[in-house]
Structures are given as structure tokens and as C-alpha cells.
Design a binder for these strands. Structure first.
Lengths: 355, 355
DNA sequence: ACGCGGCGTGTTACCGTTATCACAGATTTG
DNA sequence: CAAATCTGTGATAACGGTAACACGCCGCGT
């Protein structure tokens, strides 16, 4: 056995800055740098500054693989969805992915389309033992079966766009009621009085809230709501088609249609066109969500912007925080993030034909 | 086995089977298991069998994080896109994400909308030093500026759905020409002769190929192509609207419209409806790609299924292989993966009104 | 004074896998 | 027939982080 350590096999790769270099640069131990990066615990303000400066100067980015390996936090988190509209899904994914990259979490995707309750229960149990947390967009975040199974397994869950705040479930959402109310007020301020409403899928709280917002605004303005002008929809283009058809065949049709999401609003525009109506001259149409659909159709839709991508990102951060906390033995914390929505005015609204 | 592991700070997490357990089970060293898993080099057939059995019995899955950490493959890869349709994007992302998870690559997303060539060059240079490989969907995969910058930096690139095979660029795609030809033949076999075509964006090779396929099928069937029945489109809903409008205002309108993608086909359906035409009774409409849009509109579109998600997954695997090879000092290899397409028949096609 | 409990930080020991080299036995070579 | 080469496998040291614990130092109660 000759002297062996003289060799020092060169296995280093590229240019990647490691935590050790940062540590040396800042004159502290790697562990301290780690603590700063995770804004975890007690580090003196002075030291933190020192480290942060080094981080900035070296342009250091933690290595995700190493981090998740060492942390063994089981940083796998699942995002489970069921047949959302494509437009919605793509935004959701972009946001979630960005969030996962930022936090070094490993994101796993799963689709649970057309599942029975029993199947959902099984799937939930299975997912529970392979990930450390779950993100649930609607309508899954309202499924008692899934929720109870997941919470029985003790893994944190964050709901996205769930509408209401549930006491035992963290959520990231917008204020659907207010948003809907504002949209309705906008329509009223343009001179509309016969405003029809196409409801969303009844299994989602947000649907109810959006209707409530519409109702509140109408009532506040002293406008009666003709029950025939409220149609049930299911958030799908198809359902929007049918609802609009019913609305426009009435003897005294509405001058404006407020659909609970963009897909249904797009369908409303399509039906209006088919019937020879001009949008917005003969009929105003507004949607909700501001998915890409809103700017795809012509005319572009006035809608409420729901920042889905940002919400997904927040959801991931929230989830990771919960996971860490839970590991620390803390009681589970639930929090409720309400993000800002924006009323986006485009070309699908005008004053009614003749007031 | 008393002593030794009495202390053994309990840091172990879940149930994950490690390479060591497999090794012990098979009676070999972990290194040998690793070799088998990577189907790398010299392992006796007998030993390999032994290991594989153990792997199967224990249901072992390599830990992605550890693998990429140890391999130091610099597994960050970028997926860069510019304003694709939402439907397209969501499929792309789902596939890429799944692929990245499977291979332990870290996927980073980037949008390069509305960039000048100069800006693209800068962006390319920047991305080149932060990732080990890039995946490029159209139209970016046809941008000389980007391509040359990236190849100058020496990082592997894989193009998705690029249409043609470029000698210096690996790609994953379908046979656009054949697919388009088959679709056209389908229309012809239904009895259509006046078949209009809406072209895709001229900056994409796939557009040309799809047109060529249509042209070839028409010619082969002895059908003349009325130049007025070929309209330029840009893959957007809006452009489909305009193209269809022109098509249907002609004195002798087509009995079928073949749009180069689903978004434009959806637009065609919308215009037809607006003009009081029934689809498919008065006019057949077909699309291309089989994005969610195809099943959103009514009637659902006959289209060509392009397996975008699977293609994205393959692209990632291809890319990683290139990265590994390149690291081994191999000359760069380019390969061309042509995946299968499928003609999906739905409800937007019927025989023409009166032959 | 003495011990006790925090606080801020460094040390050590891993996380699960692979690169590299060592090495015994089989095979070829001079 | 010994030396050189090849083959298959094992031992060891990373890869870049973080958990758990150790260790001074300080203020505090008794």
C-alpha cells in the first residue's frame, strides 16, 4: 500500500459554487451558511449579513439534489388534478414548477380523472406514503374522501382556489365573492340591468361564492334577478353552450351575460355569434379567471384575473413550510392566503343597445 | 450483532429501498448493483440476473437526488418556449415534467416572448452557462440565432416537433407530411373534393410539411387545388377566424376545411356557425395536434393526434444521453426520433351535402 | 460562587449513488 | 513460462448539503 492520498482524484465538475466556497469566503462554517439559506434559526444578524454578501458576490445557488438528499425531508410533493381546462392547467403547472424549482422540492404530478370515491380513497392512501405533501386544486380540494384520507395519513395539504377557507386546510385563493361583486358592479355601471349569470359546477364552493357576489351586487343596486336568467353551468365550454342557448331563446333576453369562467364565456360568445348577435354591441359577455382562453377568442373577454401561477407558487411554499413545521413536532398550522384579483377590461363589454 | 449500531443516530426516513439493501439481498456489492442499473459495463450475465431479481423482489427505485448528485451530471436542463397556445403548452409541460422526474433532471422553464434577435442572443448566452442542455419547441427550434449561440457554447439541444430533421440538431417529432396526407385522404374518401387548407405560421417547417402532405394527397387523387382555397394562417385562433371568413365568402365555398392546427380549426367552426352553417352537415372541419381544444369545442374535432407529452419526455431522455456522452468526450451525436401519430375521427366530418 | 439553560456556531456523521482505483483470477503474449 | 493484459468485482472516497450533537460564552437564579 503506497501513499494513497497523494492522488486526490479529480472528480470536480463545472463551475458550480458550493456552500463550502461561500463559507470560506464569508469566514464561517458551511453549516452557518446552510442556516442562513434556510432562514431557519438563530444566526446573529451580523453573521447573516456577512453570509448574504458572500452569497451575492459568488452568485451562489444551492444544489437542489444535494439539498433534498441531505435533508431527507422527503421533499416530494404531489399536485393532483382532475380534468381542468387546458388553459387553467397550463398556468397551474408553470407556477407550480417555478415554485418547486425555487424551493428544491420534487414535484410529482398525478391525474385522477373519472375516479369513484373508492378509487380516490385508494389513490389518496397510495400517494400519502410516497410524498410529503399535496397540493389540491378544485374540485379535489372539496372532496371529503380525499381530504380525510390525507389528513388521516398526517400529510399536509394546501388547497388552491378553493373558494372558502376551511378550518382544517391551508389554502391559497382569491376573494371570489368580492371579485364577482366588482364585475357585476362594472356591468351595472355600464348601464346593464338584465344581467344573466351562468353558474359554475355545483360541487365547488367558488361557484357559490361567485353567484353570491353577483346576487349581492344586483340586490345592492336595487335590481331584481329574474330566476330565468340564472342558468346552471359546469365550467365546461359545452355547458356554457347550453346555458347560453337557453338564455338567448327567451322572449326578453339579457343584455349581458356573466359566466363563471372564461370557457363558458367563450361558449356564450360563440352562441351569440351563431344567432347573429354582435358582441359586445348586442350582447356583453364577461368571464372569470383570465385564462389564455380569454384572449384567444374574439372579441377578447373582459374578465377577472386570478393569478393562478403565482397562487401555485405560493401554495408550494406554504406546503413546504408546513412540512418542516410538522417535522419539528409543531401542531399543524393552517393558514389562508388571499391573493389580489384584478378586473381586466377588454372588448366584450359595451353599454346595452338602448337603455 | 450487538455493538456498533447501538447508537446509530436515527435519521433514517421512510421505507425507501436503497441500493445497499438490494446489494445485500443479491449478495454482491452496491457498486455492482449500480452497474447493473445503469446497464453500463462488464457484469457477468449470471450476476446481472441475480441483481435484477433482487431489484424486482424489493421493488427498488433509484433515488433520483442521490443519483444526480453523485453522477454530477449537471442535470439542469431548460425548456424554453414562446407564446404557444395554452393547450399545447400544458401538454408539453406535463410531459416534460414527468420526464424530468423520471430522470432526476432539474427542469427550468423560461419564456422568451416578444424578443428581438439581439435579445434572444443574449438570453441564449445566459442560459447556456446555467444549464447543461436545452429543449426547444417551435418556433424557437428554427431560430438560427438561438441555435448557433447555443451550439457555440457547446451545450446539447433537442428540438421538439420541429418538422424536419436538421443535420446538426437532435429532434423528436412526428411525420407531419404523412399525417397531413392521411388526413387529406380521409377527407377525400368521405367524398370531399373542394377541400380548403389553412396554413400554419410560415416560420415553421411543420407548416410547410403539412401543406405538402395535403398537396400530395390532393394531387395523387387527381384533385385540382384551387389557389383561393389555400389561406395563410398563423396557428392562432384569430388568424383562423380571418382565413375562414375569406374561405366562406367565396362564391363556391369549400365543403371541407383542413386547418393546420386545432386552434384554427376551432375558429373555423366558430365562423361557420356564425354564418348559419352546420358542422359537419354543411361543412366539415378538421384540425391537427389533438390538443384539448379539439374536445372542448362542439362538435368535437377530427384531428391528428400528436403525442406532445410523450415527445417532451423523450426529448428529455435524449438530451440527458447527449449530455452524458458529451461529458465522456464523445463527438456529439445527433439523432432523430420520429414518433407515431394517429388519425382521430370525431364529429366534425361528414360526407359533403350533395356529391 | 456554582450550576443551569439559552444562544450562536462549529464538528461529525451521514443521505444514496457513482467515479476511480485496487485487485484477484483468467487469458494472452513475448 | 514469466510478464503483460483483460475481466469482473469490491473498497473507498467523493458529490453538496443538512441533522444531531458538542462546545464555548453569557446571563441568571439560589
Amino acid at each position: 500500500m503506497p501513499a494513497k492520498n497523494a492522488v486526490r482524484t479529480e472528480r470536480r465538475k463545472g463551475v458550480a459554487v458550493t456552500i463550502h466556497e461561500v463559507a470560506r469566503h464569508a469566514g464561517v462554517s458551511p453549516m452557518t451558511v446552510s442556516r442562513v439559506m434556510n432562514s431557519n434559526s438563530n444566526v446573529r444578524e451580523e453573521t447573516r449579513e456577512l453570509v448574504m454578501r458572500a452569497v451575492r458576490e459568488l452568485n451562489y445557488t444551492p444544489n437542489a439534489a444535494a439539498r433534498s438528499l441531505a435533508a431527507a425531508q422527503g421533499t416530494r410533493i404531489a399536485l393532483i388534478y382532475t380534468n381542468p381546462s387546458a388553459a387553467y392547467l397550463s398556468e397551474l403547472l408553470v407556477g407550480a414548477l417555478a415554485g418547486a424549482a425555487r424551493t428544491a422540492a420534487q414535484l410529482v404530478l398525478d391525474t385522477w380523472d373519472h375516479m369513484s370515491h373508492a378509487a380516490e380513497r385508494v389513490a389518496a392512501r397510495k400517494i400519502a406514503q410516497s410524498v410529503a405533501g399535496v397540493i389540491l386544486p378544485p374540485p379535489l380540494c372539496e372532496s371529503k374522501v380525499v381530504l380525510s384520507e390525507l389528513s388521516a395519513a398526517g400529510i399536509p395539504v394546501v388547497a388552491i382556489a378553493s373558494g372558502r377557507f376551511q378550518a382544517d386546510l391551508s389554502s391559497v385563493r382569491i376573494d371570489d365573492f368580492r371579485a364577482s361583486q366588482e364585475m357585476t358592479e362594472h356591468l351595472i355601471s355600464m348601464g346593464h340591468a338584465r344581467i344573466a349569470f351562468i353558474r359554475g359546477h355545483p360541487n365547488q364552493t367558488a361557484s357559490t361564492l361567485r353567484y353570491d357576489g353577483y346576487h349581492a351586487a344586483m340586490t345592492a343596486a336595487g335590481l331584481a334577478i329574474d330566476p330565468a336568467l340564472v342558468q346552471q353551468g359546469y365550467f365546461t365550454y359545452r355547458s356554457g353552450l347550453e346555458a347560453t342557448e337557453k338564455l338567448l331563446t327567451r322572449k326578453s333576453p339579457p343584455t349581458a351575460i356573466f359566466a363563471s369562467n372564461d370557457d363558458m364565456a367563450a361558449a356564450a360568445v360563440s352562441v351569440a355569434h351563431r344567432r347573429g348577435l354582435d358582441v359586445p354591441r348586442d350582447l356583453s359577455v364577461v368571464g372569470f379567471d383570465d385564462t389564455p382562453t380569454a384572449t384567444t377568442v374574439w372579441p377578447e373577454l373582459t374578465t377577472v384575473r386570478q393569478p393562478i401561477a403565482a397562487m401555485a407558487g405560493s401554495a408550494i411554499e406554504l406546503l413546504l413550510r408546513s412540512i418542516r413545521l410538522r417535522k419539528d413536532g409543531e401542531a399543524r398550522v393552517v393558514s389562508d392566503h388571499v391573493m389580489a384579483h384584478v378586473l381586466i377590461k377588454r372588448d366584450s363589454v359595451a353599454a346595452p343597445r338602448k337603455a
